[in-house]
Amino acid sequence: MSRPDNRDFKRLFLADTPMMDTRSPGEFAEGAFPQAVNLPLMLDDERARIGTCYKHEGQQAAIALGHQLLQGAIKKARIAAWLDFAQTHPEGYLYCFRGGLRSRISQQWLQEAGIDYPRIIGGYKAMRRFLIHQLELSAQHRFIVVSGQTGCAKTRLLQGLADAVDLEGLANHRGSAFGKRLGGQPTQIGFENALSIALLKRRHAAPQAAIVLEDESRLIGRIAVPEVLRESLRQAPLVVVQMPLPERVEHTFHNYILRNLADWQAYAGELSGFATFAEELRQNLATLQRRLGGYRHSQLLAEMNAALAEHARGNPDAHRFWIEPLLRDYYDPMYAYQLGLKAERVVFRGSYAEVAAYLGEER
């Protein structure tokens, strides 16, 4: 029995329903949903040609051109990809931009191939509008913001909490000048979509519980935290993780050195991965040169280069010699100043374990 078309966006997102996005690759790249797979009806150049035809000759001529372009082996290949998705995800749905012609054609071709597959009414545009509204509703929810000096393992703490949303994870960036992650960042729209869905899930799972977020600046890498959410977070109570400098150096060393290098070498191979990792470290430090000052930057760069030379010989331990002064002399004073501006919002201070226990009780 075939399933009906669907416009229950909330249920679709809460269930992580698989979605077949039939928009062009260019449209998908601008913004998509976490559970969507791009299996386009038309590629970008095909869509551009049909769009030009529609503009100058009207809808019927554009449809005729579409059928001319999408026939034979091209049509068979696209239907085969859709059939594979539909058979792998029988609970899924398909959509195009507005839920109109492209998704109906995709439905029809699948039907002719023997599968009735439902579409999402209103398409991407309606779902995007829904998520923008949900983000505005989420911004009215109760929040707790976790703060702490660089290297306090705040992200790891959040990942252990049921009611937390990891902004840095969604942005695929650790937040600092050294925070780039392999794979790059999503688009701004893609980040907002994923954030809205994550907040919706937290609100649905525990409507009365505060949602825990990390204290972030306006930008996480190149991704902007939506202003409607930032305004709420500026009023939220603050919980501060306190950790001794040696422990923060170790956490930074393991995450920004050992883990980053392992990621790069798994992606690019041992030698090429190390070279890329080393160059990225130097570039990250260079972005701080103006704020560090020329003398302090040159000192840290010399320590970094010496550590990289040792690391290339198999001993990564010397990285601690530049990580410690960078944390102590650059990040810590900046953090102290920023926290001073928010002092009246602090409701709890404690060690990693104490903050984790406090947040568990707060839930």
Rank of each mutant, 00 (worst) to 15 (best):
R218W: 11
R218E: 09
L219V: 11
V225A: 07
V228Q: 14
E231G: 02
S232G: 11
R234T: 10
Q235V: 01
A236N: 09
L238N: 09
V240Y: 13
V240I: 15
V241D: 02
V241N: 05
M243N: 09
M243G: 00
M243I: 10
P244R: 11
P244W: 05
P244N: 06
P246E: 12
E247A: 15
E247D: 13
R248M: 11
E250A: 12
H254C: 07
H254Q: 14
H254K: 13
N255A: 15
Y256Q: 08
Y256S: 09
I257V: 15
I257L: 14
D263V: 06
Q265I: 02
A266Q: 14
A268R: 02
A268M: 01
G269L: 04
G269Q: 05
E270S: 10
S272I: 02
G273E: 03
F274M: 01
T276N: 04
A278C: 08
A278D: 01
L281G: 01
R282H: 11
R282M: 09
N284M: 15
L285Y: 09
L288K: 03
Q289D: 03
Q289S: 07
R290C: 03
G293P: 08
G294N: 13
Y295F: 04
L300Y: 02
L300I: 10
L300E: 09
A302T: 06
M304C: 14
N305E: 15
N305S: 03
N305H: 11
A306T: 09
R313L: 14
P316Q: 09
P316R: 07
P316T: 03
D317M: 08
D317W: 03
F321D: 06
I323V: 13
I323T: 08
E324K: 05
P325A: 14
L326W: 06
L327N: 00
D329V: 00
A336I: 10
Y337M: 04
L339P: 08
L339S: 03
G340M: 08
G340H: 08
L341Q: 15
A343L: 08
R345E: 03
V346T: 11
V347E: 04
G350L: 05
G350N: 10
V355S: 02
V355H: 02
A357E: 15
A357Y: 07
A357F: 06
L359M: 13
